[in-house]
Structure formats: structure tokens, C-alpha cells
Design a protein around this nucleic acid. Structure first.
Lengths: 303, 303
DNA sequence: TTGACTTATAACTAATAGTTATGATATAGT
DNA sequence: ACTATATCATAACTATTAGTTATAAGTCAA
């Protein structure tokens, strides 16, 4: 529980944008405008200078922001303290995750967490790393999970689990029985790749380049916009591709896909947990973080 | 601006009654029940033990109450600070007043105040002294104005203006030309009095008894339920009565009533301002209190 | 057990918050 | 200077939340 008007106000103050704030709190922009107008009416003072694109807090706004943060902290603390008394963990945890971890890992983790804490509602929001970081900074989400490196952030970063990018192919493919394949061999096979601009495509190209294989030398037959579509294509024998082992888990179990790793260098990266440095966590979030720390990710992948 | 759910919760916590709280915040009792239920749902904990008629805070309730008070203080402070910046005094002042001061003095005072502070909304609630004290303690009103003595309260009491109870009569009455009348003469004239249980009746009887005139010796012809009805009756020559000079002001000006004071002892009492000892006042209330301090009540009565 | 008192529930209404569609305004690029 | 674009404001409508009246269901005391 917290004050909705003040929450909206704080988000605008932090992002310095009505539209960005609206995105973060999952509201439309006019809704944000109206809430701010209502506050300005209540306090009889303009809270933001909107001279064009640049939005700044007025002195009154600055003042309200200070109080609003304190008020929100009290709300959070009250909830936490009462949670301690009742023993019951209850509330909402909002998680942001980038594609792979959001689609293939978090659903299982969240389900397991909910078995232990049935009164905690979990919201999972899937977006790219940039947005996750932004949402997190503006308190639009409680924690973030991203793949790859996050730098220069005023956020706490912790490795959660590692991820291996593996070669996938149809079980009928000649490589299907081989434990590993040399990177140079990739030029001989039709390769299915993500669209231009995709983060996954970028890291794959970077990896291949590092090992002397330039992207233009690849027989790129198909460009698909999602991991799911790539898997389908590979299952149908249209070519090979590289995806996260987590994303291939189900198909490996069913035997509709086979994997191979690279001879030269294993293609691994980490999934990281991001959170704000603030110590003011809700009881639900606390429980989630503790739960996560002892979560057996290894079992998950091998099961 | 403040949190409505918490406001309702605090009032229930302070009065230890849903129905009494509903009266104080001018809501119906079911509305209060629903708000409390909503809070209990939010925090996943019962906040009150309602075992029969006795309502007590649960440990979770105690805790929330502590936080709620802090939160409300922050809301008030924020409003005040912003008010200081803008210079504009804006908000709501809720005044409780007992009958005479509420009906005959406060309307003028409030009108004058509003000329200087047009952005302050004033709510005036007229009730008996007992209720005023109760509302004030539970923060249902910001200040109270009562006639007569208030004792044993954890409230601040300040004399505002004095009030004289005077004999009123028709201009055609034989006493109309006399500046004062002896108390003993009252037995000879038909006397119009307030109903049993009225505070005004009580103090009149007390005064008369003190001066050796027992209520049963009075020719009590009519018993009326309001000061206005008594004035009408006296204007029509049905008898004489004793009312506050403030209440008779308009009729004295128009000449439809005449007054006399008592020979033996002037019948005076004070109107007092009551407020909580808390220092957390809104900017509007502050302004009102300051305005009141220098208000020329004397001019009011003589004008 | 009844009667007075207090809180809970149900059905309806009022008020508030949010949405879509569109307009206005300021900055950026040609 | 003139579009183009990005961003906030406004309007009309819808959904959600809060409050009301009427009534039921408990408690306690006689």
C-alpha cells in the first residue's frame, strides 16, 4: 500500500518526463498528466516547469519530492513490520527480465516461489536490458534480471546463474551425434539468425568474429524475430542456429532438438540480478531475494 | 491532502468504535467498516479485535497506528512547507462550535476571514460541547468554540470573547424602558424557556437558583426548542426570556426586541477556543488562529 | 429471550481514476 | 523559415473505487 498520486509524482520527478513515467508505472500519459494536475490543484502550486521538452521540479515540487520519498518509506516499513508480526508474506513483487531469462527461467522460479509464498503476487515484465535498468532506477520494478554485462550503473549487480549459448540442430542432422563442432564448420550449414538489432544477434556476431568467423561468411538463410520461431525452423531441418541452452531445454527433453558446443571456446555468459541500492525493500521482495539465493538453478537445467 | 484509509483507521483506533468514528469523519458506519476491511485485506492482518462491543487494536493495528500518525504528520508538514513557498494559504479548516457561538458569531468571523484568505475552505459544524470535545480529540475538527467551562480536558483552552445573557422582551413591554430588572421580578412575568436537557436552560436555572429564585417559582408558559423560536415568541409579546446578547443582536438593531440586564449580578460567561496540544497545524489553520487572535469581537457586537 | 447497541453485508449510486482519440506547443532537422 | 517529431494537455467516454441506504447478524445486559 502506498499513495498513488505521490508514486506517480515521484516517477515523473525521477524520469523528468510524463510519458516515460507513464510507461514505467504502466499507465497512459494522460493519466499521469491528470494525477499531476490534481496534485498541483491540491497544493495550489505548480510542481513542474514544463517549458517545452525539458521538465524540471519547481521549488514546491522539490519540497514535495522530499516528503513524498519519506512518506513512501514509511508505507513500505509499515507493511514490512506488519508482515513480520503476522508471519504472512503478502504483497506484490514486480520483476523485470530480459528475454531469455524472462521467458525460460523466471516462470519456473516464480512458480516454485509461489508454492512457498502463495500470498505474494508476482508481476513479470519482459523487456530489453536498457528498459529493465531504466524501470529499476525509477522504481517501476523491484528487481531486474538481465543477460550479459551491465556496467556504469548505480545498481547492485549479482550473478545469478550462467548461461551457455549452444548450437542447435535437428536430430536428423549430421552434427546431431557429435558432441562438439568447430566454429569454422558453421560456414557450411544454413544458419538461422535473429533480426538486425537483436541483442542475441549482436552477441553471437561478436563471438563468431572473436573466433575469426566474419558474419558475412555465414550462410544466413533465414532471419526470424524470436527464439521460438528459430527453434521451430531448426526442428524442421531448415538449418542450425545458436541459442541459450535454457531456451532449448524443453526441446532437448522431447528430443526434437539436439545441441552441440563449440570445440574452440565455450560460449558462456551470466544472468545477473539487478537491484537498487536502497535498503527499503518490502517483506515480499526480501523473501523473494532470499528464496532466489538458495534456488537450485542447476537442477532446473538438468531436470 | 492525506491518506483517507489511514485517516479512517486512526479515527477508529482513537475512538475504539466504528460508529463513533463514522460520525466524526462524517461518513456512514458501513463506509468505515469497508475501509477497515480493505486495509485488513491489504496488510493481510486483522487490525481490530471486534469481540462484541469492545474494540481493541491488534498488535498489527498498534503498529500501523504508529506509522499512520507519522505518515499523516508528513502529509501535513509537506502541505505547510509548500504553503510557505507559494505564500498562498489554501486548504480546509474545520470548525466545531456550540450553538450560540456557532450560529451567531462564527458566520461573521468566517466571512471576514474568507475575504482575506479566499482559498481556504471553512467547514462549520454546530453541535453540543460534549461532541465538540470528542470530535476535537479524534481530529474530526481542527478547532472548537464552546460556551461555558470546559475542564479536565487534554485540550488547550483560550478565552475568545465574553458573552452576556440578557433579559429580552418586546419593545411594548413595561420593562422595555428600564435599564435593569431585579431577578425577583421574573416571577411576575410569563417566562419562555428552552426544553429540559438544554445546556442553555441548565445555566439559566443555575444562575437563578444562585440568586434565590427557584425554577419552579417562574411562570413558565412556553417551552421552545431553539433560540430562534424563543425570540419570535418574545417579539410577539408572549413573555420574556433570557438569551445571549449575541443571539439578540439582529433584533436589537431592528428594534423588535429590547434587553435589560440584572440588577443584582451581571450574567456573563466566556466563549472559549479549544484545540489539540499537537503542534502539527496546517497552514490554513495557522492563519485562521492568527486571524482570530486579532479579531475585533467588540466591534462586532456594537455594530 | 428479548431489546438495545454495534458491526457486517448487499444492492445501488456517486465520485474518482483511467483510456482512447485528438489538439497544442516546443524543439530539431532540412 | 518550415516541416517533422516528440511531448504534454484536453475532451469524451468507460472502468473502478468509495459511499449510501436498507437490512441482517452478532453481543451483552436485563
Amino acid at each position: 500500500m502506498q499513495d498513488h498520486k505521490l508514486k506517480v509524482f515521484c516517477t515523473v520527478a525521477e524520469t523528468k518526463s510524463f510519458s516515460k513515467a507513464s510507461e514505467i508505472i504502466r499507465l497512459t500519459q494522460p493519466a499521469v498528466s491528470l494525477q499531476i494536475q490534481a496534485l498541483e490543484e491540491i497544493y495550489g502550486a505548480k510542481l513542474f516547469n514544463r517549458s517545452g521538452c525539458i521538465i524540471t521540479l519547481t521549488p514546491a515540487g522539490e519540497l514535495l519530492y522530499k516528503y513524498a520519498k519519506d512518506i513512501n518509506t514509511l508505507y513500505t516499513d509499515a507493511e514490512k513490520e506488519i508482515g513480520k508480526i503476522t508471519g504472512l508474506v503478502k504483497g506484490i513483487v514486480t520483476i523485470g527480465a530480459s528475454s531469455t531469462i524472462g521467458n525460460y527461467i523466471m516462470p519456473t522460479v516464480i512458480s516454485d516461489f509461489r508454492k512457498k509464498f502463495p500470498k505474494v503476487n508476482v508481476h513479470l515484465l519482459i523487456s530489453n536490458t536498457k528498459n529493465i535498468v531504466e524501470y529499476l532506477n525509477a522504481a517501476g520494478i523491484d528487481v531486474g534480471f538481465v543477460e550479459g554485462d551491465v556496467t556504469k550503473q548505480k545498481l547492485l549487480i549479482e550473478k545469478v546463474v550462467s548461461d551457455e549459448m549452444v548450437l542447435i540442430m535437428s536430430p536428423l542432422h549430421t552434427w546431431a551425434k557429435r558432441p562438439y563442432v568447430s566454429i569454422s564448420e558453421l560456414t557450411r550449414e544454413p544458419f538461422i539468425i535473429r533480426e538486425e538489432g537483436s541483442g542475441t544477434r549482436q552477441i553471437i556476431e561478436k563471438y563468431l568474429t572473436k573466433h575469426g568467423l566474419h558474419p558475412q561468411n555465414i550462410k544466413s538463410t533465414l532471419t526470424f524475430g524470436s527464439t521460438e520461431s528459430i527453434k521451430s525452423a531448426v526442428e524442421n531441418g531448415l538449418g542450425v542456429s545458436i541459442i541459450s541452452r535454457w531456451a532449448a531445454k524443453k526441446e532437448l527433453r522431447y528430443g526434437t532438438l539436439k545441441t552441440a558446443t563449440f570445440k574452440e571456446d565455450r560460449f558462456v555468459r551470466d544472468f545477473s540480478l539487478l537491484r537498487r541500492k536502497t535498503k527499503s525493500f518490502s517483506h515480499s521482495l526480501d523473501s523473494f531475494l532470499v528464496y532466489l539465493k538458495s534456488y537450485p538453478f542447476d537442477k532446473l537445467l538438468s531436470s
